[in-house]
Structure formats: structure tokens, C-alpha cells
Design a protein around this nucleic acid. Structure first.
Lengths: 348, 348
DNA sequence: AAGTTCCATGTTGACGTCAACATTGACGCC
DNA sequence: GGCGTCAATGTTGACGTCAACATGGAACTT
């Protein structure tokens, strides 16, 4: 069962419509672009002709003529993470709603060379702007050289970035988590951090640390994971047997899951012996055992705001290097409770 | 802090390179396309000139000239699901490796109108081919009218589709899960199915059913969820209190997670009282409590094979409506065990 | 009535690339 | 030496669209 494909076929062009409607190509163009300087009756005739011949505009020709494509490029290193795919989905719907299409450019190892290459390719393809979604921070070390004049919005950026950026308010989220545990009466809060090359992880870690400092609490060393449940499980081994550990803030829900499992295995109850707070609020977290108290971040909002900012930049032609921070929210479930013996502890 | 963007700027074109190198534009074109009928020395001169002026080919012009864009379109309804994002990631890397870029086209409600529209838009954008990743099956009811001659590969398709398709071998996976539980000595296997509008869900359900029939076992009614952990949890209520239920095959890992939680809440032990098998093998499943026995499917492989098939179709110009089936694998962990009282049971 | 304005429409050319054809000149062969 | 061959390079035009300018005529002004 094999069918011949008529390759390289082209659809009808404006010229065909023009012939059919008995007008010039330019008039067709005007109708297609919704200009108002066309007689009502002529417009209708053209519209009918379009329908009859099945005309559809050719974006390649438009792009060639106009220099741009009504398309935005997305450079991503984290496509299949929970947050990444959520954000991408929001970006895609927002862009499509505004009549832009999405050109995806994955980057496996976000070295400066690779990212520069990705930019070049997108520029060649005449995208109108680029969204960068790279959680790795190696990039700020050496400046990325960007095609001049291509609008860019960075998601999850180094705060000192020169580009407009949109991100979850990581610091606020970490404060929420840490202070929640402190408020329950825990002496201090341990932390399983994300990988050090991640902006988000670093900001959560610093904010956790600062919060403890602000409250005058001892600051345990942070354990460093890589976002995976596996790493949470592994690192948890060091926490499980220390009775001083009564509260842990984990930099994402997946690592929290690993931690929960390790705790179960050692027979330590959650939240009885140890309280746990995650970060992200993935759909599954409600169904962890116990249901996880966590910091919800709105990836959808981040994606939408980023598209908005980029489209602004594209249409106005000016870039304001402002940083949009999307707020977080603490979602209380069943993995946190006051510490078992609170006697003898005093809030300094 | 606001910088003026030089909008609509264009990079140097072949003409600029030609002038710089003192040759004709055509020679530059030949060098750029790697033709061999150019003198070695001339080629070098052109290459140098390209570097000097910073030439980069203009894909819009190429697309206009050649009719196609070296880009493949992806129509997706399930972008942010575990499988969807995994598959997309694989598609993106495979395509980029072959020098194609990805144009993403999300479809929120995969009605036939919306999908047809998505096709049109992609065709306008001169994509070379389209990958369709829509789990909903409403689509086969009324034929989708596709731009003639645009190569298409469908992922997770209705088997009777006229297009080449690539998919996980759902039936095999369900057999693996069901027979594993039967082999452990369970009398029969309950099933929490995915939503009826999903091809994959239906095939898993039918295959589970057929397997029970083949072994002459009683066939319980399937419970129908929607893939979410939430639905697994909700449906589990009906299973928890029935002591006859000793083995459950869940159509994905997330619903299995919901089931596990419900079972914990009712104080039923897994796998002691109830054995559970999932489907997908998401990264987290290893860390569920207990670690979940599940059927692993390789989304990466599906994505890669799909790109391969599409690129074949694009380059050869012929479409073989063959169906590639990617095998699954049973991953044994700790959520299954023989039933408590096996006395009196015999394998017919 | 002659001039002015304005609107609907047409004509031309350029965006960057590349296939098809044309040109040039070096080399080999009888 | 004349002729064919072939390799390297150049010239022309077309892909589809649309800005800029040109045209032609109706309506309006004085």
C-alpha cells in the first residue's frame, strides 16, 4: 500500500486568485491583508475567488518580503521536565492565540557554542523573537553573542541578565516553605537543593539560608541533588538516621518523593517524625504518601507572561530589561506538622 | 534601561559575499550548497568572504525557491503529559540532528476543524512533513482533509489509519502486565483503564480483556479513569473494600499512584493484600511506595522512529502506510507478589 | 469649466536563492 | 589546426508577496 506523493507541489498563489477574480495581484494582496482601501464589491469577489481556488498565503514569500515570519523561536534545554513541558505548553498556546507559530530548538548541552548556534539557526529562519528557557547558568560566564536586534526574553534567568526576563519568584517560594516549617515550631530546616548549575536551585537555596539566618536559626549544610527522585532518595540516607532532623525543605517535588520513600524504608513517619515541604506542586504530589505540602509555581503564568513580554518587544521595537516575577503559593497538605517534642525549644 | 532594536534588519546576502569574494552570486550558492563543481581555490575565497561578512543563508528565500523549508510540523494535543513531552523531546533532537527544525502546533480540542486548521497553517509555513500526536480518537469518525501530498506520520494512531504510524505496542504491554499477575497465581486481574477517547487506553483495555479470556478467567468490569492520579484515587474506592480484588493493572503510572494512596488510606497493604502493575515507567515510579512494577514504554524510541519514517517519506516521496510497533518491557519492582491465600486456586 | 482631491485599482521591482542555460577557455585527439 | 569535451564560472529569470509609485476617473471646489 504505497501512494505517490506529488512533491514540491505548490498551492495556488495570489496570481491565480487575481486571474480568477479579474483583478490585479496587488488587490488580492490588499484583501488578504485586510486593508480597507478596497471596494466592498471587489473585496467580496476576491474573497470568493480565494475560496474557489483554495488560496492560502505563502509564509515563506511573506517572510522573504517582510524580513520576518510571525513565528517565535524557543530555545530549550529542559523539554521533558515537568516545569519545562508545562511552560512550553503555555508558550505555545499563548503564541498561537496571537497568531504566531513556534519554532522549537532543543539544546542538549547548553554550552555557549551550542546556544549561539541555536540563535543563529533561529535567526536564519526569520523568527521574530526568541524565548530562552535554559536552566543552566553556565551561560553567563562568557557572554552569549546574539544576533543583534533579535528580540529576546529569558525565562528563569540570571537576575543580572541584560535581557527582559520572566520567572517564578523563587526566593518568595523558599521563604514560604521555610517559614511555614519554622512557624510549626521546628528548630531549623534542612534543605535538599537542586543542582548548583541551575539558577532556580541556587535562588531557592540562598533564600532558604537567608530565611534561617533572619530568624537566627542554625543553618545546616544543604544537600545537593539533581532534581531527580533518585537523588532525593540517595541524599535522604544522610538525613534519615539523624533524630535532629525534623523538617526538610526539598527544592522540588520529585526529590521530596525520593525522600519520602527513604523515610518510609527507615520506618520514620512523615509528618510524625519528619515534616517535608516540596516545590512545584506537580499533579502527582497530592497523591504522594502522605500528600505533600509544597510550593506551587505557575508555569502556565510564566509562559504566558514571557510570550506577552516578547510580543511587546517585537511590536514596539524596544526592550525593557525588566524582570517579571510570578508569585508562588504554599499548598498545605499532610506532610508537615509540629515537631514531636517541642519542650525545651524556644524561639530565639 | 531600554535599547533600540534595529528592526527588520537583514543580514548580508549572497550578493554581498559574491562582491566581497569577486565571484558571481551563483558561485556563492554553489559553495553554500556544497556542490563539487567549484575550483578549490575559489571555494576557499568564497568561504573566507562568507566568514568576513558574516553570511548566513536565508531560509525564507530558500523555502520560497525550493517550496520547502527543512522543517517538520508537529501537531500535538498532549504536550504536557509525561509521554507527550518525552516524545516531543525525542522528535526534536532527532529532527535537529538531521538538520530539520520543528514547528510546533498545539491543538487544544482536537476537533476535526481544529486539526484541519493546524494542517493548513503548517502547510502555509512550508513544512516538509507533519507528525501528528493526538491521543484522542474522535478524529477517525470523519475523515480529516489533509493538504494533498504533504507527508504525514501519525503517532499513537488508530490502527486502521491510512497513514504510516508509529506507536508503542500497547497490546503487548497489556499482555505482559496481565500475564505477570496471572503467573503469580492471581485468579483474575482488575483494570483501571484510561479514557475511552484515547486509542492507547482502548488498546490496553482490549488486550487486558483478551488476555483474561484467553486464560479462561473471569473478566471484571474495567473502571474508566482519565489518566490522572486523581481519577485513580477516586476509582480505587470501589476496589479497596472488595477482598476479591487481589491484583490490579492500571493503564498508567499516575492512576496507579492514586490507587496506591487509596489502598494505604484503607490500610490495605501493597503488595500483601493487593498487587498493582502500572504502565509507562515514569521516572518517579521507582520511588512510589512501594516501588511500582510497571510496563516500560520507550517514548524516545517512538519519537525517533516517527521522525525517521517521516524523513523517509519526505526524501523518497512515497508513503508506506506501515505501522511501526515499538516493544514494551515489564519492569519488576515491589508492588506485585502472589496472592495471600493461594490454596484451592489452580491454573486452568 | 478648470483645477484639486481622493479613492480604487494597476504596474513595477525587489526581497535572497538557485535551476537552467550560456559562456569561456583549457585540453586532448585525429 | 580544427573540433569536440569538459570543467569552472557567469547570466537570467522565477518562486509569491507587497511597498512604492502610477493611473484613471468621480466628486468636489471656486
Amino acid at each position: 500500500m504505497s501512494q505517490q506523493l506529488s512533491r514540491g507541489r505548490r498551492g495556488p498563489s495570489m496570481a491565480d486568485v487575481a486571474r480568477e477574480a479579474g483583478v490585479s495581484g496587488q488587490t488580492v494582496s490588499r484583501v488578504a491583508n485586510g486593508r480597507d482601501n478596497v471596494d466592498q464589491e471587489t473585496r467580496q469577489r476576491v474573497l470568493d475567488a480565494m475560496r474557489r481556488v483554495g488560496y492560502r498565503p505563502n509564509s515563506a514569500a511573506r517572510a522573504l518580503r517582510n524580513g520576518r515570519f510571525r513565528s517565535i523561536g524557543v530555545i530549550m534545554s529542559t523539554l521533558s521536565t515537568f516545569g519545562g513541558s508545562r511552560t512550553l505548553e503555555a508558550i505555545a498556546s499563548a503564541a498561537v492565540a496571537r497568531g504566531y507559530s513556534i519554532t522549537l530548538r532543543p539544546v542538549v548541552h547548553p554550552t555557549q557554542r551550542e546556544v549561539t548556534g541555536a540563535f543563529s539557526r533561529l535567526d536564519e529562519q526569520a523568527v521574530d523573537g526568541v524565548l530562552v528557557l535554559i536552566h543552566e547558568r553556565e551561560l553567563d560566564e562568557s557572554e552569549i553573542e546574539l544576533p543583534a536586534g533579535l528580540p529576546v526574553v529569558v525565562i528563569d534567568a540570571n537576575p543580572r541578565s541584560d535581557y527582559p526576563s520572566v520567572d517564578t519568584d523563587q526566593a518568595e517560594g523558599a521563604v514560604l516553605a521555610t517559614e511555614h516549617l519554622l512557624a510549626l515550631g521546628h528548630e531549623t530546616v534542612w534543605h535538599i537543593a537542586g543542582p548548583p548549575h541551575s539558577y532556580a536551585a541556587e535562588r531557592r537555596r540562598k533564600s532558604w539560608q537567608a530565611t534561617l539566618a533572619r530568624h537566627g536559626r542554625p543553618i545546616p549544610d544543604a544537600l545537593t541533588g539533581d532534581w531527580s527522585a533518585e537523588s532525593g532518595y540517595r541524599l535522604a540516607q544522610r538525613l534519615c538516621d539523624d533524630p535532629a532532623v525534623t523538617a526538610v525543605f526539598t527544592a522540588n517535588d520529585q526529590m521530596a518523593l525520593g525522600l519520602l520513600r527513604a523515610l518510609h524504608e527507615r520506618g520514620r513517619s512523615v509528618p510524625g517524625d519528619v515534616s517535608v515541604v516540596g516545590f512545584d506542586d506537580m499533579a502527582e504530589s497530592r497523591f504522594f504518601w502522605p500528600p505533600l505540602t509544597t510550593v506551587r509555581q505557575s508555569f502556565g503564568e510564566v509562559g504566558r507572561r514571557a510570550v506577552e513580554a516578547l510580543l511587546d518587544e517585537i511590536t514596539t521595537g524596544t526592550a525593557d530589561a525588566t524582570a517579571v516575577r510570578v508569585p508562588t503559593e504554599l499548598v498545605l497538605r499532610s506532610s508537615t506538622t509540629p515537631p514531636r517534642s517541642q519542650a525545651g525549644k524556644s524561639d530565639s
